[in-house]
Design a protein around this nucleic acid. Structure first.
Length: 440
DNA sequence: AGGTTAAGCGCG
DNA sequence: AAAGCGCGCTTAACCT
Protein backbone atom coordinates (compact mmCIF):
# COMPACT_ATOMS: atom_id res chain seq x y z
CA UNK A 1 0.00 0.00 0.00
CA UNK A 2 1.37 3.45 -0.88
CA UNK A 3 2.35 5.55 2.13
CA UNK A 4 -0.05 8.37 1.18
CA UNK A 5 -2.98 5.95 1.19
CA UNK A 6 -1.90 4.37 4.49
CA UNK A 7 -1.65 7.83 6.02
CA UNK A 8 -5.15 8.65 4.82
CA UNK A 9 -6.54 5.46 6.40
CA UNK A 10 -4.73 6.11 9.65
CA UNK A 11 -6.02 9.67 9.80
CA UNK A 12 -9.55 8.54 9.06
CA UNK A 13 -9.34 5.92 11.82
CA UNK A 14 -8.25 8.54 14.31
CA UNK A 15 -10.96 10.94 13.16
CA UNK A 16 -13.74 8.35 13.41
CA UNK A 17 -12.49 7.28 16.84
CA UNK A 18 -12.53 10.88 18.04
CA UNK A 19 -16.09 11.34 16.79
CA UNK A 20 -17.16 8.17 18.57
CA UNK A 21 -15.53 9.34 21.77
CA UNK A 22 -17.23 12.75 21.62
CA UNK A 23 -20.59 11.12 21.13
CA UNK A 24 -20.34 8.15 23.46
CA UNK A 25 -18.22 9.37 26.36
CA UNK A 26 -20.81 11.89 27.61
CA UNK A 27 -23.34 9.07 27.77
CA UNK A 28 -20.93 7.06 29.96
CA UNK A 29 -19.99 10.06 32.09
CA UNK A 30 -23.65 10.65 32.91
CA UNK A 31 -23.47 7.62 35.22
CA UNK A 32 -20.85 7.54 37.94
CA UNK A 33 -20.48 3.75 38.03
CA UNK A 34 -20.06 3.54 34.27
CA UNK A 35 -17.55 6.35 34.26
CA UNK A 36 -15.52 4.56 36.91
CA UNK A 37 -15.58 1.27 35.01
CA UNK A 38 -14.42 3.11 31.92
CA UNK A 39 -11.69 5.10 33.63
CA UNK A 40 -10.52 2.64 36.28
CA UNK A 41 -10.97 -0.65 34.44
CA UNK A 42 -11.41 -0.47 30.67
CA UNK A 43 -8.81 2.16 29.82
CA UNK A 44 -6.08 0.69 32.08
CA UNK A 45 -6.81 -2.89 31.04
CA UNK A 46 -6.56 -1.92 27.37
CA UNK A 47 -2.89 -1.17 27.97
CA UNK A 48 -2.38 -4.53 29.71
CA UNK A 49 -4.08 -6.34 26.82
CA UNK A 50 -1.84 -4.65 24.30
CA UNK A 51 1.20 -5.84 26.20
CA UNK A 52 -0.11 -9.39 26.52
CA UNK A 53 -0.77 -9.52 22.80
CA UNK A 54 2.71 -8.26 22.11
CA UNK A 55 4.29 -10.67 24.63
CA UNK A 56 2.78 -13.67 22.90
CA UNK A 57 3.01 -17.29 23.98
CA UNK A 58 5.83 -19.71 23.23
CA UNK A 59 4.60 -22.82 21.42
CA UNK A 60 6.43 -26.09 20.88
CA UNK A 61 5.38 -26.23 17.24
CA UNK A 62 7.31 -29.42 16.51
CA UNK A 63 5.43 -31.26 19.27
CA UNK A 64 2.10 -30.15 17.80
CA UNK A 65 3.13 -31.23 14.31
CA UNK A 66 3.96 -34.68 15.73
CA UNK A 67 0.57 -34.79 17.43
CA UNK A 68 -1.10 -33.89 14.12
CA UNK A 69 0.61 -36.82 12.48
CA UNK A 70 -0.51 -39.17 15.25
CA UNK A 71 -4.07 -37.88 15.18
CA UNK A 72 -4.14 -38.25 11.40
CA UNK A 73 -3.08 -41.87 11.59
CA UNK A 74 -5.71 -42.67 14.21
CA UNK A 75 -8.34 -40.93 12.09
CA UNK A 76 -7.48 -43.10 9.09
CA UNK A 77 -8.21 -46.20 11.13
CA UNK A 78 -11.61 -44.84 12.18
CA UNK A 79 -12.30 -43.83 8.57
CA UNK A 80 -11.64 -47.38 7.41
CA UNK A 81 -13.99 -48.78 10.05
CA UNK A 82 -16.64 -46.16 9.27
CA UNK A 83 -16.66 -46.98 5.57
CA UNK A 84 -16.91 -50.66 6.44
CA UNK A 85 -19.89 -50.04 8.73
CA UNK A 86 -21.52 -47.71 6.20
CA UNK A 87 -21.00 -50.06 3.26
CA UNK A 88 -19.72 -47.20 1.10
CA UNK A 89 -17.22 -44.34 1.26
CA UNK A 90 -18.48 -40.95 2.45
CA UNK A 91 -17.19 -37.72 3.93
CA UNK A 92 -17.26 -38.15 7.71
CA UNK A 93 -17.03 -34.38 8.03
CA UNK A 94 -20.31 -33.81 6.24
CA UNK A 95 -23.39 -33.94 8.51
CA UNK A 96 -25.48 -34.13 5.35
CA UNK A 97 -23.69 -37.18 3.95
CA UNK A 98 -23.53 -38.79 7.39
CA UNK A 99 -27.27 -38.28 7.79
CA UNK A 100 -27.94 -39.93 4.43
CA UNK A 101 -25.91 -42.96 5.51
CA UNK A 102 -27.31 -43.27 9.04
CA UNK A 103 -30.94 -42.45 8.47
CA UNK A 104 -31.27 -43.37 4.77
CA UNK A 105 -29.03 -46.27 3.89
CA UNK A 106 -28.88 -47.86 7.35
CA UNK A 107 -32.36 -46.82 8.45
CA UNK A 108 -31.44 -45.69 11.97
CA UNK A 109 -34.14 -43.81 13.87
CA UNK A 110 -34.10 -39.99 13.67
CA UNK A 111 -33.67 -38.79 17.25
CA UNK A 112 -34.04 -35.07 16.64
CA UNK A 113 -33.98 -32.57 13.80
CA UNK A 114 -31.86 -29.48 13.36
CA UNK A 115 -33.31 -25.98 13.10
CA UNK A 116 -33.53 -26.37 9.33
CA UNK A 117 -35.33 -29.72 9.50
CA UNK A 118 -32.45 -32.04 8.66
CA UNK A 119 -31.92 -35.03 10.96
CA UNK A 120 -29.42 -34.05 13.63
CA UNK A 121 -26.12 -35.91 13.92
CA UNK A 122 -24.69 -33.99 16.85
CA UNK A 123 -22.80 -35.55 19.74
CA UNK A 124 -25.85 -36.12 21.91
CA UNK A 125 -27.75 -37.85 19.09
CA UNK A 126 -24.83 -40.04 18.07
CA UNK A 127 -24.21 -41.03 21.71
CA UNK A 128 -27.81 -42.18 21.95
CA UNK A 129 -27.60 -44.13 18.67
CA UNK A 130 -24.26 -45.64 19.73
CA UNK A 131 -26.16 -47.66 22.35
CA UNK A 132 -27.60 -49.80 19.54
CA UNK A 133 -25.42 -49.37 16.44
CA UNK A 134 -21.66 -49.38 15.72
CA UNK A 135 -21.24 -46.53 13.19
CA UNK A 136 -22.27 -43.63 15.47
CA UNK A 137 -19.55 -44.53 17.99
CA UNK A 138 -16.92 -44.65 15.25
CA UNK A 139 -18.00 -41.23 13.99
CA UNK A 140 -17.90 -39.79 17.52
CA UNK A 141 -14.34 -41.01 18.06
CA UNK A 142 -13.31 -39.70 14.65
CA UNK A 143 -14.89 -36.30 15.28
CA UNK A 144 -13.07 -35.86 18.58
CA UNK A 145 -9.74 -36.42 16.83
CA UNK A 146 -10.68 -34.31 13.80
CA UNK A 147 -11.60 -31.38 16.04
CA UNK A 148 -8.25 -31.48 17.82
CA UNK A 149 -6.28 -31.83 14.61
CA UNK A 150 -8.01 -29.27 12.41
CA UNK A 151 -8.54 -26.58 15.04
CA UNK A 152 -5.42 -26.91 17.16
CA UNK A 153 -2.53 -29.17 16.23
CA UNK A 154 -2.64 -28.26 12.51
CA UNK A 155 -3.37 -24.56 13.01
CA UNK A 156 -1.31 -23.34 15.97
CA UNK A 157 2.09 -24.12 14.42
CA UNK A 158 1.07 -22.07 11.38
CA UNK A 159 0.16 -19.14 13.63
CA UNK A 160 3.65 -18.74 15.06
CA UNK A 161 4.97 -15.30 14.15
CA UNK A 162 8.41 -15.80 12.55
CA UNK A 163 9.60 -12.46 13.97
CA UNK A 164 9.01 -13.42 17.61
CA UNK A 165 8.78 -17.19 17.33
CA UNK A 166 5.57 -16.94 19.34
CA UNK A 167 1.79 -16.98 18.93
CA UNK A 168 0.12 -13.58 19.36
CA UNK A 169 -3.61 -13.66 19.98
CA UNK A 170 -5.90 -10.66 19.67
CA UNK A 171 -8.11 -9.75 22.62
CA UNK A 172 -11.40 -8.03 21.87
CA UNK A 173 -12.49 -5.70 24.61
CA UNK A 174 -15.88 -4.76 23.21
CA UNK A 175 -17.41 -7.94 21.85
CA UNK A 176 -18.89 -9.95 24.72
CA UNK A 177 -22.00 -8.23 26.12
CA UNK A 178 -21.22 -9.33 29.67
CA UNK A 179 -17.86 -7.55 29.80
CA UNK A 180 -15.76 -10.63 29.19
CA UNK A 181 -12.85 -10.54 26.80
CA UNK A 182 -12.81 -12.56 23.61
CA UNK A 183 -9.67 -14.03 22.09
CA UNK A 184 -9.17 -14.65 18.38
CA UNK A 185 -6.57 -15.37 15.67
CA UNK A 186 -5.93 -17.70 17.36
CA UNK A 187 -8.48 -18.11 20.11
CA UNK A 188 -6.41 -19.03 23.17
CA UNK A 189 -9.48 -19.21 25.41
CA UNK A 190 -10.73 -22.53 24.06
CA UNK A 191 -7.60 -24.69 24.13
CA UNK A 192 -8.68 -28.27 25.00
CA UNK A 193 -8.49 -29.47 28.62
CA UNK A 194 -11.32 -31.94 29.20
CA UNK A 195 -9.78 -35.04 27.62
CA UNK A 196 -6.30 -36.59 27.90
CA UNK A 197 -5.66 -36.17 24.15
CA UNK A 198 -6.75 -32.55 24.47
CA UNK A 199 -4.50 -31.90 27.43
CA UNK A 200 -1.49 -32.94 25.38
CA UNK A 201 -2.04 -29.79 23.33
CA UNK A 202 -1.53 -27.73 26.48
CA UNK A 203 1.82 -29.41 26.97
CA UNK A 204 2.95 -27.53 23.85
CA UNK A 205 2.31 -24.17 25.54
CA UNK A 206 5.76 -23.89 27.06
CA UNK A 207 8.08 -21.61 28.98
CA UNK A 208 11.46 -20.70 27.47
CA UNK A 209 14.61 -22.11 29.11
CA UNK A 210 15.12 -20.64 32.57
CA UNK A 211 11.46 -19.70 32.98
CA UNK A 212 8.27 -21.38 34.16
CA UNK A 213 4.60 -21.12 33.29
CA UNK A 214 2.54 -19.93 36.24
CA UNK A 215 -1.23 -20.34 36.12
CA UNK A 216 -3.56 -18.78 38.69
CA UNK A 217 -7.32 -19.23 38.55
CA UNK A 218 -10.19 -18.04 40.69
CA UNK A 219 -11.93 -20.91 42.42
CA UNK A 220 -15.70 -21.09 41.79
CA UNK A 221 -15.83 -17.38 41.22
CA UNK A 222 -19.32 -17.20 39.73
CA UNK A 223 -20.89 -19.17 42.58
CA UNK A 224 -19.11 -16.93 45.06
CA UNK A 225 -20.51 -13.91 43.25
CA UNK A 226 -23.97 -15.46 43.40
CA UNK A 227 -23.53 -15.83 47.16
CA UNK A 228 -22.46 -12.19 47.39
CA UNK A 229 -25.26 -10.77 45.21
CA UNK A 230 -28.05 -12.92 46.59
CA UNK A 231 -26.89 -12.69 50.19
CA UNK A 232 -28.15 -16.24 50.67
CA UNK A 233 -27.16 -17.30 54.18
CA UNK A 234 -26.44 -20.96 53.50
CA UNK A 235 -24.35 -20.22 50.45
CA UNK A 236 -22.45 -17.46 52.26
CA UNK A 237 -21.79 -19.79 55.16
CA UNK A 238 -20.51 -22.55 52.89
CA UNK A 239 -17.92 -20.26 51.34
CA UNK A 240 -16.97 -18.58 54.61
CA UNK A 241 -16.27 -21.97 56.13
CA UNK A 242 -14.23 -22.98 53.12
CA UNK A 243 -16.47 -25.96 52.40
CA UNK A 244 -16.60 -28.02 49.23
CA UNK A 245 -19.61 -26.12 47.89
CA UNK A 246 -20.94 -28.92 45.67
CA UNK A 247 -20.79 -31.31 48.61
CA UNK A 248 -22.52 -28.74 50.79
CA UNK A 249 -25.28 -28.33 48.18
CA UNK A 250 -25.70 -32.12 47.91
CA UNK A 251 -25.93 -32.31 51.68
CA UNK A 252 -28.69 -29.67 51.67
CA UNK A 253 -30.85 -31.01 48.84
CA UNK A 254 -30.54 -34.66 49.82
CA UNK A 255 -30.93 -33.88 53.50
CA UNK A 256 -27.89 -35.84 54.62
CA UNK A 257 -24.60 -35.12 56.39
CA UNK A 258 -21.81 -33.81 54.13
CA UNK A 259 -19.71 -36.86 54.97
CA UNK A 260 -22.45 -39.17 53.68
CA UNK A 261 -22.70 -37.52 50.24
CA UNK A 262 -21.96 -40.03 47.49
CA UNK A 263 -19.96 -39.27 44.37
CA UNK A 264 -23.13 -39.33 42.29
CA UNK A 265 -24.97 -37.01 44.66
CA UNK A 266 -22.09 -34.56 44.52
CA UNK A 267 -22.13 -34.74 40.72
CA UNK A 268 -25.86 -33.95 40.71
CA UNK A 269 -25.31 -30.98 43.00
CA UNK A 270 -22.52 -29.69 40.80
CA UNK A 271 -24.73 -29.81 37.71
CA UNK A 272 -27.46 -27.99 39.64
CA UNK A 273 -25.09 -25.32 40.92
CA UNK A 274 -23.75 -24.61 37.46
CA UNK A 275 -27.18 -24.90 35.84
CA UNK A 276 -28.59 -22.28 38.16
CA UNK A 277 -25.96 -19.77 37.14
CA UNK A 278 -27.28 -20.15 33.61
CA UNK A 279 -30.97 -20.12 34.45
CA UNK A 280 -31.48 -23.78 33.60
CA UNK A 281 -34.99 -25.23 33.67
CA UNK A 282 -36.24 -28.60 34.96
CA UNK A 283 -36.24 -29.72 31.32
CA UNK A 284 -32.57 -28.86 30.90
CA UNK A 285 -31.56 -30.36 34.23
CA UNK A 286 -33.41 -33.59 33.40
CA UNK A 287 -31.67 -33.83 30.02
CA UNK A 288 -28.32 -33.13 31.62
CA UNK A 289 -28.63 -35.69 34.40
CA UNK A 290 -30.56 -38.24 32.36
CA UNK A 291 -33.44 -38.27 34.83
CA UNK A 292 -37.21 -37.64 34.65
CA UNK A 293 -38.39 -34.08 34.44
CA UNK A 294 -40.46 -34.52 37.59
CA UNK A 295 -37.36 -35.62 39.46
CA UNK A 296 -35.43 -32.64 38.13
CA UNK A 297 -38.25 -30.32 39.13
CA UNK A 298 -38.11 -31.83 42.58
CA UNK A 299 -34.39 -31.18 42.92
CA UNK A 300 -34.79 -27.58 41.86
CA UNK A 301 -37.61 -27.07 44.35
CA UNK A 302 -35.49 -28.56 47.12
CA UNK A 303 -32.59 -26.36 46.10
CA UNK A 304 -34.66 -23.19 46.29
CA UNK A 305 -36.17 -24.28 49.61
CA UNK A 306 -32.66 -24.64 51.04
CA UNK A 307 -31.29 -21.52 49.35
CA UNK A 308 -34.20 -19.07 49.52
CA UNK A 309 -31.87 -16.14 48.99
CA UNK A 310 -30.94 -17.53 45.59
CA UNK A 311 -34.62 -17.97 44.67
CA UNK A 312 -35.24 -14.36 45.67
CA UNK A 313 -32.27 -13.21 43.58
CA UNK A 314 -33.66 -14.98 40.50
CA UNK A 315 -37.10 -13.41 40.92
CA UNK A 316 -35.78 -9.94 41.69
CA UNK A 317 -33.36 -10.02 38.78
CA UNK A 318 -36.12 -10.95 36.32
CA UNK A 319 -38.32 -8.19 37.69
CA UNK A 320 -35.55 -5.60 37.61
CA UNK A 321 -34.58 -6.56 34.07
CA UNK A 322 -38.19 -6.17 32.97
CA UNK A 323 -38.69 -2.79 34.62
CA UNK A 324 -35.42 -1.09 33.67
CA UNK A 325 -34.44 -3.03 30.53
CA UNK A 326 -30.96 -3.84 31.79
CA UNK A 327 -29.11 -5.62 34.60
CA UNK A 328 -25.84 -4.65 36.29
CA UNK A 329 -22.70 -6.24 37.64
CA UNK A 330 -21.62 -5.55 41.22
CA UNK A 331 -19.58 -2.63 39.90
CA UNK A 332 -22.38 -1.22 37.78
CA UNK A 333 -21.53 -2.47 34.30
CA UNK A 334 -24.78 -2.74 32.37
CA UNK A 335 -26.13 -5.42 30.09
CA UNK A 336 -29.09 -4.24 28.02
CA UNK A 337 -31.82 -6.79 27.29
CA UNK A 338 -33.80 -5.59 24.29
CA UNK A 339 -36.08 -8.65 24.27
CA UNK A 340 -36.86 -8.81 27.97
CA UNK A 341 -40.43 -7.65 27.32
CA UNK A 342 -40.87 -9.39 23.98
CA UNK A 343 -44.32 -10.86 23.31
CA UNK A 344 -42.43 -13.85 21.88
CA UNK A 345 -42.22 -16.30 24.78
CA UNK A 346 -39.00 -18.14 23.86
CA UNK A 347 -37.18 -14.88 23.15
CA UNK A 348 -38.37 -13.39 26.40
CA UNK A 349 -37.27 -16.49 28.30
CA UNK A 350 -33.85 -16.38 26.69
CA UNK A 351 -33.52 -12.74 27.76
CA UNK A 352 -34.48 -13.70 31.32
CA UNK A 353 -31.77 -16.36 31.44
CA UNK A 354 -29.24 -13.88 30.11
CA UNK A 355 -30.39 -11.44 32.81
CA UNK A 356 -29.79 -14.00 35.53
CA UNK A 357 -26.37 -14.99 34.20
CA UNK A 358 -24.95 -11.59 33.29
CA UNK A 359 -24.40 -10.17 36.79
CA UNK A 360 -22.33 -13.23 37.72
CA UNK A 361 -20.40 -13.65 34.49
CA UNK A 362 -19.95 -9.89 34.21
CA UNK A 363 -18.81 -9.36 37.79
CA UNK A 364 -16.25 -12.13 37.34
CA UNK A 365 -15.05 -10.32 34.22
CA UNK A 366 -14.78 -7.04 36.16
CA UNK A 367 -12.76 -8.73 38.90
CA UNK A 368 -10.22 -10.42 36.66
CA UNK A 369 -9.71 -7.21 34.70
CA UNK A 370 -8.95 -5.44 37.98
CA UNK A 371 -6.56 -8.28 38.80
CA UNK A 372 -4.79 -7.90 35.47
CA UNK A 373 -4.27 -4.20 36.11
CA UNK A 374 -3.00 -4.87 39.65
CA UNK A 375 -0.66 -7.63 38.51
CA UNK A 376 0.80 -5.59 35.66
CA UNK A 377 1.25 -2.58 37.93
CA UNK A 378 3.04 -4.74 40.50
CA UNK A 379 5.33 -6.24 37.83
CA UNK A 380 6.14 -2.77 36.52
CA UNK A 381 6.84 -1.24 39.92
CA UNK A 382 9.21 -4.06 40.78
CA UNK A 383 10.81 -3.88 37.32
CA UNK A 384 10.20 -7.59 37.00
CA UNK A 385 10.84 -9.65 33.89
CA UNK A 386 7.79 -11.85 34.42
CA UNK A 387 5.13 -11.43 31.76
CA UNK A 388 1.38 -11.81 31.59
CA UNK A 389 0.78 -14.00 28.54
CA UNK A 390 -2.86 -15.19 28.66
CA UNK A 391 -6.25 -14.54 30.22
CA UNK A 392 -8.85 -17.31 30.11
CA UNK A 393 -11.88 -15.74 31.84
CA UNK A 394 -11.08 -16.86 35.38
CA UNK A 395 -7.39 -17.64 34.89
CA UNK A 396 -4.22 -15.64 34.36
CA UNK A 397 -1.14 -17.23 32.85
CA UNK A 398 2.34 -15.77 33.25
CA UNK A 399 5.82 -16.57 32.03
CA UNK A 400 8.15 -16.25 35.01
CA UNK A 401 11.98 -16.37 35.13
CA UNK A 402 13.40 -18.67 37.79
CA UNK A 403 14.74 -15.71 39.83
CA UNK A 404 11.21 -14.33 40.25
CA UNK A 405 9.33 -17.58 40.76
CA UNK A 406 9.02 -17.56 44.54
CA UNK A 407 7.97 -13.94 44.64
CA UNK A 408 5.32 -14.38 41.92
CA UNK A 409 3.96 -17.56 43.49
CA UNK A 410 3.37 -15.85 46.79
CA UNK A 411 2.19 -12.46 45.53
CA UNK A 412 0.03 -13.36 42.50
CA UNK A 413 -2.75 -15.02 44.52
CA UNK A 414 -2.70 -12.14 47.01
CA UNK A 415 -3.08 -9.59 44.23
CA UNK A 416 -5.90 -11.53 42.61
CA UNK A 417 -7.88 -12.13 45.79
CA UNK A 418 -7.33 -8.59 46.98
CA UNK A 419 -8.94 -6.68 44.12
CA UNK A 420 -12.29 -6.44 45.84
CA UNK A 421 -13.86 -7.28 49.13
CA UNK A 422 -17.08 -9.20 48.62
CA UNK A 423 -19.11 -10.79 51.39
CA UNK A 424 -17.36 -14.08 50.63
CA UNK A 425 -13.61 -14.62 50.38
CA UNK A 426 -12.09 -14.96 46.92
CA UNK A 427 -9.80 -17.94 46.48
CA UNK A 428 -7.09 -18.48 43.89
CA UNK A 429 -5.37 -21.71 42.92
CA UNK A 430 -1.86 -21.22 41.64
CA UNK A 431 0.34 -23.74 39.86
CA UNK A 432 3.76 -23.84 38.24
CA UNK A 433 5.25 -25.97 35.48
CA UNK A 434 7.42 -26.16 32.42
CA UNK A 435 4.22 -25.95 30.36
CA UNK A 436 0.61 -24.91 30.72
CA UNK A 437 -0.61 -28.44 31.37
CA UNK A 438 1.88 -28.98 34.20
CA UNK A 439 1.01 -25.63 35.73
CA UNK A 440 -2.41 -27.03 36.68
C1' DA B 1 -12.86 -16.57 -6.34
C1' DG B 2 -14.93 -15.04 -2.32
C1' DG B 3 -18.66 -14.45 1.07
C1' DT B 4 -22.39 -16.42 4.01
C1' DT B 5 -24.91 -19.84 6.62
C1' DA B 6 -25.57 -24.25 9.01
C1' DA B 7 -23.88 -27.71 11.83
C1' DG B 8 -20.96 -28.98 15.12
C1' DC B 9 -17.80 -28.41 19.09
C1' DG B 10 -13.59 -26.41 21.75
C1' DC B 11 -13.31 -23.38 26.27
C1' DG B 12 -14.96 -20.70 30.95
C1' DA C 1 -42.03 -22.91 20.74
C1' DA C 2 -38.13 -23.67 23.46
C1' DA C 3 -35.84 -25.83 26.89
C1' DG C 4 -28.13 -23.44 29.63
C1' DC C 5 -25.09 -18.21 29.76
C1' DG C 6 -20.90 -16.17 27.06
C1' DC C 7 -17.58 -16.70 23.14
C1' DG C 8 -14.52 -18.28 18.20
C1' DC C 9 -13.19 -21.69 14.62
C1' DT C 10 -13.63 -25.38 11.09
C1' DT C 11 -15.83 -27.63 7.32
C1' DA C 12 -19.46 -28.34 4.02
C1' DA C 13 -22.81 -26.50 1.32
C1' DC C 14 -24.69 -22.89 -0.92
C1' DC C 15 -24.81 -18.29 -2.99
C1' DT C 16 -23.18 -14.29 -5.68
Amino acid sequence: MPIEQAARYAAEDADVTMHLHRTLYPRIAAHEALERIYREIEIPVSVVLQRMERNGVLIDAAALVRQSDELGRKMLDFERRAVEAAGQPFNLNSPKQLGEILFGRLGLPVVRKTASGAPSTDEEVLAKLAEDYPLPRIVLEWRALAKLKSTYTDKLPKMVDPRSGRVHTSYSQAVAVTGRLASSDPNLQNIPVRTPEGRRIREAFVAPPGSSIVSADYSQIELRIMAHISGDESLLRAFEQGLDVHRATASEIFGIAPADVSAEQRRYAKVINFGLIYGMSAYGLAANLGIERDAAKNYIERYFARYPGVARYMDETRALARSQGYVETVFGRRLWLSEINSPNGPRRSAAERAAINAPMQGTAADLIKMAMIAVQRWLDERRMASKLIMQVHDELVLEVPRAELDEVRSELPRLMTGVASLSVPLEVECGVGANWEQAH
